[in-house]
Design a protein around this nucleic acid. Structure first.
Length: 315
DNA sequence: AGCCAATCCCGCCATG
DNA sequence: GGCATGGCGGGATTGG
């Protein structure tokens, strides 16, 4: 089983600590077993966290055996990193372990020199200070996370969730990741997702679906057939269907419908267009088809959804 | 609700 | 043999 060590240093942000623990602890594989063994480790048994204290079960030696090491954010990112922690992180990276930071955890990775010459991200409020302290790191505060192959960094707290799900997808495929995302009630890819994270691993040898997905999200009213989409992606329809399922966890038409409904939700929330106008703006041929589809996916009819959302918005 | 035509999806299998 | 591709057929889904 893939082992994950989550590093709880003094001043750890509980939210960032909880994110990898929760996500990786609930990844059921098709055979019913759990995909990951998660262990929280610290320098000492007692760890002072932001807001409350923790008692952790494991020590720093876990970093020597874990396949993946996650470093959550610290409430004081400028706090000096103990030499023992730096050494353990360097050794782990040297033996090929995957190293991941959430939020200001990037400061710890940078202090260990693991981000030198790489692109990285951190919480946007800390990005300027980060750039000042570590000019050898190329920091980009405008993405959810950065994938450097063995080293991963994510922006503010919620982006840690995106990154954890990204790792599940790398390890076990989009279908398992989609299940994990559903357990977290979290979209596997956020709206407009491709531009929000950066992957710096070697480019895929085969043609990618990313340009097509970007084009589809930019033209929500188009209704391309599967054959058209396949042609646009440069593959045969049969191969396109397979690759699409592998990469997104959904079939092409399922994904397209989901994207349309998400777009419709946003229009209902932010515009005053009629339901009929929203329907056609989202590529539905008729308002009745739109209403039926929307209701099935969201659980609420479009007009009711808008009223409910506007009440929440005023509160 | 139900009908129909179009389209999609996915197992199967031949091919390279 | 393993592997990805892509054509085919028919049961499932979708849209009108």
């Amino acid at each position: 089983m893939h082992s994950i060590a989550v590093l709880a240093l003094p001043g750890v942000v509980p939210f960032d600590l909880a994110t990898p623990c929760e996500v990786f602890s609930h990844v059921p594989l098709p055979d019913g077993s759990q995909a990951y063994d998660v262990r929280v480790c610290g320098l000492a048994r007692h760890v002072k966290a932001k807001g409350y204290d923790l008692r952790v079960a494991w020590r720093l030696d876990q970093l020597a055996r874990a396949d993946t090491i996650v470093v959550p954010g610290l409430s004081d990112p400028l706090a000096p990193v103990p030499p023992a922690v730096r050494r353990a992180l360097v050794a782990a990276a040297a033996r090929g372990a995957r190293v991941v930071s959430i939020c200001t955890g990037a400061f710890v990775l940078a202090a260990a020199g693991l981000l030198d010459g790489l692109r990285a991200t951190t919480h946007w409020l800390a990005a300027a200070e980060f750039a000042r302290r570590y000019p050898q790191v190329d920091v980009d505060p405008d993405v959810l996370f950065v994938d450097n192959g063995r080293v991963f960094t994510s922006a503010g707290a919620a982006a840690g969730l995106d990154l954890c799900l990204h790792l599940v997808r790398l390890d076990h495929g989009a279908a398992v990741a989609a299940d994990a995302a559903r357990l977290s009630v979290m979209p596997l890819q956020r709206e407009g997702g491709q531009a929000q994270f950066i992957v710096h691993t070697s480019p895929p040898a085969s043609p990618s679906l990313d340009p097509l997905l970007a084009w589809l999200t930019q033209h929500p009213a188009r209704s391309p057939t599967l054959t058209e989409m396949a042609h646009r992606a440069g593959m045969s329809p049969r191969t396109f269907s397979r690759r699409f399922l592998d990469q997104t966890g959904e079939t092409p038409v399922q994904w397209l419908l989901g994207a349309r409904v998400r777009h419709a939700q946003r229009l209902l929330e932010t515009s005053s267009q009629s339901v009929e106008q929203v329907a056609s703006a989202c590529g539905f041929g008729s308002a009745s088809a739109f209403r039926a589809r929307f209701t099935r996916v969201v659980g609420t009819a479009p007009a009711r959804y808008r009223r409910a959302f506007q009440r929440v918005g005023q509160a």
